[in-house]
Amino acid sequence: MKLKRNTMLLLLPGTVLLILFLFLPLLSILFPTFFNEAFTIGKYVEFFKDSYNLGILWRTFKISMIVTIICVILGVPTAYFMSLTSKRTRSLLLAVTLFPLLTNSVIRSFAWITILGKNGVLNSFLLSLNIIKEPVGLLYSEFAIIIGTVYLFLPILITTVLGVLDNIDGDLIEAAQTLGANYFKSFTKVILPLCIPGILVGSMLVFTGTLTAYTTPQMLGGNKNMMLATMLYQEASALGNWTNAGVIALIMIVVTLLVMQIFNIIANQFDKRGEDENA
C-alpha cells in the first residue's frame, strides 16, 4: 500500500512521543545490562543460572498460561451466549462485563483480599457451613493471583471474542442447522473454528497482560509468590539495583514478543482459508 506523505505526517506526533518517552528511556535502562567495562551478557547468564530466578520465570509463565486457559474456557461460551441474546439484554450484559474495568485494579485486588483473607467472606461462609474447621489460607498464593488476574482480564477476552462472533454471518449457523447440525454441532463445527483467530487474539492479550501484571500479583501473591513484574519492582525500588531490573525487563519484553509471534503464527494458520492462493 502506498501512502501519501501527508498521511504519513499523521504518525509523527505518536512516533516522536514513543521515541522520546519510551524507546530512549528503555535503551538507557537496557544499555547498562550489556556493559561491564566491555560488552558482556554476563548479567543474563547470571540470571538464568539462579534457580530462584528460574522459579519466578516459570511461575510467571505458568500462571499466565493457566489464566489464559481459564479465561478462554469461561469467556468463549459467555461471548457466544451474549451474541445470541437480544440487543437490549446484550448491552446490559456487556455493561456488566465491562463494569470491573471501570474500577481501579488496586481496588479490585482489595476486594479479593476481603473475599479471600483469613477473616474474609469466603472463609466465614465455609466456617458457618461447617465445611472447614479452621480458616484456610487462600490469600497470598498462586491461586489468589490466578483468581484476581482472571477477574482482571476476562472482560478483555469476552469483548474480543464477541467482536469476532458478531462478524460471523448468521446465515452460516442457520445453514448448518438446515444441514442437520444441532445447536452443539453448529457451534463446534462452524462457529468455534471461525472464531479461533479471535480467541487467539484475546488469549494473546490476556497472556501478555498477565505476564506483565504487577498490582494483582503484588497484592494477592505476597512475597512468596513473586512474578517477573513484582521481582522487577523489588530489584529497582527496594534494592535499587537498576541493572538487574533492566535484565528482567528485557527478558519480559523478549518473552512477550516471542509469545505474540507464536500466537500470530497460529492465528494465521487458521485464518488462511485459501486467501493466499488466487482463484
Binding site: 446465515d171 452460516l172 442457520e174 438446515t178 462452524v190 487458521f270
Partner: peptide, 13 residues
C-alpha cells in the same frame, strides 16, 4: 430439507 440462502452461506473455513 435442503436450503440455499441468498448469501449462499458457505462455510468459509
Amino acid at each position: 430439507f435442503g436450503m440455499v440462502f441468498q448469501s449462499y452461506a458457505l462455510f468459509p473455513h
